[in-house]
Nucleic acid binder design. Sequence first.
DNA 1: ACTTTATTTAGGAAAATCACTAATTAGATA
DNA 2: TATCTAATTAGTGATTTTCCTAAATAAAGT
Lengths: 91, 91
Amino acid sequence: MLNNKAFKALAHPVRRDILRRLRGGQLSAGEIADAYDISKPSMSIHFKVLKEARLIQAERKGNHIYYRLNVTVGDEVLSGIMDIFGIEKEK
Amino acid sequence: MLNNKAFKALAHPVRRDILRRLRGGQLSAGEIADAYDISKPSMSIHFKVLKEARLIQAERKGNHIYYRLNVTVGDEVLSGIMDIFGIEKEK
DNA sequence: ACTTTATTTAGGAAAATCACTAATTAGATA
DNA sequence: TATCTAATTAGTGATTTTCCTAAATAAAGT
């Protein structure tokens, strides 16, 4: 399946929340992780899952790694859902 | 999370395919199951997951159980995805 | 009542997911 | 080089998922 990884990534509430948090622009791994009561290593795994699904993109700036949303894949998921349910895009 | 179950249900490629198959109208458990190289009991579990996520609805007719799509929940998922990525509904 | 057909439930094994702590890597700075 | 900060990787354990076969249930036909 083409974007099975994206659907799998979206199956976890924390990962969906991370994405929502990135709507406003890029944030560092630490900034995101601080918002959750989950260890940094565990958060890092969530970032990895999102990255491998191409739902987020990473950029290193000195000491920090900044993550930002990849809305393109968001659109793909949206199209996927619409296809699944036979929902037409209202123009 | 409200519809975490729906997102979890959508994480499996076979379950997404089952839903797609139901776009054209209702089908019996057996009709759906026959299309996959997976045992009936395992398929039954997939139906259960989809049912508990309210993505499908079941109706017994004599010997058969017919499943049909619940597009309402499809719409909810769609809205959820749009919210996550900050995608605006184009009117 | 017995049998057949359709489907689910029970029980169990393998694999994946998700969390943790400890250790490592990468870059900046003294 | 040594040290500090930021983030990841390694290793481990608990839980969940996903599949199987065998058994049970439900409705219909004989």
